[in-house]
Simulated scan of single mutants.
Amino acid sequence: MKKLMISLAVALFATPSLAQEKLVHKIPSEDKIIQVKQGLSCHDCPFPNEFKLTVWNMYKGKKDSWQIDFEELMNESDILLGQEFSFKGKMKERLFNPEDEEIILATSFISWGKHNTGVTNISKYPTIQITPLRSKVREPFIRTPKLSLASQYKLEDGRSITFINIHAINFVKKKSLKKQINQVVNYIRTTNGPVVFAGDFNTNSKSKIKMMRNILSSEGFQEVKYTGEDDRMKWLGNKLDYIWYRDLELISAKVRGDVEGSDHKPLQASFRIPIE
């Protein structure tokens, strides 16, 4: 037991170069972050004034029911913001073969040098702009960044709507998470029209949750509240997944506790775009 504890300590506190010898995760160059898989039948359709959003950390498709649950959620949604995709097995096959969807895949890193993983924005409508935002801070030991993915869509009235999907940096101090959130906020300040900012914020402490709420509330965002049981994924009693919105009317929202295709429960919300 003592030898095991010593081995674990060595692994945890090894220098980054030693850790990278054991945990080889390739980070793509800026021009290799984004892949787009196009399957849309309509290439100029505007995003609807009423829409349904799903947010889901998909756990790299490790659960047996992932694909069945994914198809059900996608059928119900105009747009799905997914975290933790993996270019492996059934998940890779499905994400590389869109079914009347536009699938945007943003790679954070290539796990073990073989399988891309990151965030994906999947919509039934075409984007007019795609912007990946790679975190300037990296997770300890494996030294990998995390991504936020912004995608914009044309509205019927000529404006645009922006969706930003975050998988936040984990196992870091509050100030590092704050840097990543502020990076996204700085991008949001360059946009016009309604905005949804959602995903896995990895808010694993009450101080991180408070920090997130303070920043986004000060930027005019509202936090989605859910009807029914709120059984979102928790770490040390702290909820990790959130939907924030600005310049939209929330119609309804729920946590899909019935879905078993990941360790995270999907979040779903319906919105209406106010008439100016």
Rank of each mutant, 00 (worst) to 15 (best):
Phe70His: 07
Pro48Arg: 07
Gly61Tyr: 09
Pro48Val: 06
Asp64Tyr: 12
Gly39Tyr: 05
Met74His: 02
Asp69Thr: 11
Tyr59Arg: 12
Cys45Phe: 01
Met74Arg: 12
Glu71Thr: 11
Val55Tyr: 07
Lys52Asn: 13
Phe51Trp: 05
Met58His: 02
Asn49Asp: 10
Met74Cys: 05
Asp44Cys: 01
Met58Glu: 01
Asn49Tyr: 03
Ser77Trp: 01
Lys60Arg: 15
Pro48Lys: 08
Lys52Tyr: 02
Cys45Trp: 00
Trp56Gln: 04
Lys52Pro: 00
Asp64Phe: 09
His43Trp: 00
Leu40Asn: 03
Tyr59Thr: 10
Met58Gly: 00
Trp66Glu: 11
Asp44Glu: 07
Asp64Asn: 14
Lys37Phe: 15
Ser41Asn: 07
Leu73Arg: 06
Glu72Gln: 14
Lys37Val: 06
Leu53His: 03
Asn49Leu: 05
Lys52His: 12
Ser65Ile: 13
Asp78Thr: 04
Glu71Asp: 13
Thr54Met: 09
Gly39Cys: 06
Gln38Ile: 06
Gln67His: 13
Lys52Leu: 10
Ser65Met: 14
Gly39Thr: 06
His43Leu: 13
Tyr59Phe: 12
Ile79Ser: 00
Ser41Asp: 03
Glu50Met: 08
Lys37Tyr: 14
Met74Pro: 00
Gln67Ala: 13
Asn49Gln: 11
Gly39Val: 07
Asp64His: 14
Gly39Trp: 05
Lys37Arg: 13
Met74Gly: 00
Asp78Ile: 07
Thr54Asn: 09
Lys63Gln: 15
Trp66Thr: 14
Pro46Asn: 09
Trp56Ala: 04
Gln38Tyr: 11
Ser41Glu: 03
His43Arg: 09
Ser77Thr: 06
Gly61Met: 11
Trp66Ile: 10
Lys62Leu: 13
Cys45Pro: 00
Met58Arg: 00
Leu53Cys: 04
